[in-house]
Simulated scan of single mutants.
Amino acid sequence: MDQLPDIIGYPLAEALQICESSGYEIEIVVTRPVKATTEENPRVVRFNVVSTNKGVVTVAFEDIVRGGG
C-alpha cells in the first residue's frame, strides 16, 4: 500500500473494489445537501487514510435534477 488509490469522483461500488484490491478496509460516511431529493448514484468525494490498512470514504449522492449534471 505504497500509493493511495485515486478514487475521487468514482461511483461508490467501483471505488470500493479499487480500495479492496489495494488492501484497504473501508468505512463509508455519507454526506448530502439539506434538501436532497434523491439517494441514487453515490460518488466518492473524499478518501482519508486513518491507519496502515484502513480508510474512510465520504460519498455524496448525485442530484442531477437540480442541475450541474
Rank of each mutant, 00 (worst) to 15 (best):
M1T: 12
D2N: 12
D2M: 04
Q3A: 12
Q3L: 08
Q3T: 14
L4P: 14
L4A: 15
P5Q: 02
P5D: 03
P5N: 05
P5C: 01
D6Y: 08
D6R: 11
I7M: 02
I7W: 05
I8A: 01
I8T: 00
I8S: 03
Y10S: 11
Y10Q: 14
Y10C: 12
Y10G: 08
P11N: 06
P11L: 13
L12E: 15
L12V: 13
A13V: 09
A13D: 13
A13K: 15
E14T: 07
E14K: 13
E14W: 07
A15G: 08
L16G: 08
Q17Y: 04
Q17G: 11
Q17E: 07
I18W: 03
I18T: 10
C19R: 10
E20D: 14
S21R: 15
S21Y: 14
S21W: 13
S21K: 09
S22I: 07
S22R: 14
S22V: 07
S22F: 11
G23H: 13
G23C: 08
Y24Q: 03
Y24P: 03
Y24W: 02
Y24A: 03
E25P: 04
E25G: 10
E25K: 13
I28W: 03
I28M: 03
I28R: 00
V29D: 04
V29R: 00
V30T: 04
V30H: 03
V30R: 00
V30W: 04
V30S: 01
T31W: 07
T31G: 11
T31Y: 09
T31C: 11
R32N: 06
R32S: 13
K35Q: 15
K35W: 12
K35A: 14
K35V: 11
K35G: 09
A36T: 15
A36Y: 15
A36W: 10
T37S: 15
T37F: 14
T38I: 09
T38P: 07
T38F: 10
T38Y: 07
P42I: 04
P42Y: 03
P42D: 09
P42S: 08
R43L: 10
V44Q: 06
V45A: 06
V45F: 09
V45S: 08
R46F: 12
F47H: 04
F47D: 05
F47Y: 08
F47P: 02
N48P: 08
N48V: 12
N48R: 01
N48G: 05
V49R: 03
V49C: 04
V50W: 04
V50S: 00
V50H: 00
V50L: 03
S51I: 12
T52P: 11
T52W: 08
N53R: 07
K54Q: 02
G55H: 02
G55P: 01
G55T: 01
V56C: 06
V56D: 05
V56A: 06
V56L: 07
V57E: 02
T58P: 04
A60F: 11
A60W: 08
A60C: 12
F61M: 04
E62S: 06
E62H: 02
E62Y: 02
D63M: 05
D63A: 06
I64Y: 11
I64P: 14
I64L: 15
I64W: 10
V65N: 13
R66I: 14
R66S: 14
G67F: 01
G67R: 05
G67E: 03
G68I: 01
G68W: 02
G69H: 05
G69N: 04
G69Y: 08
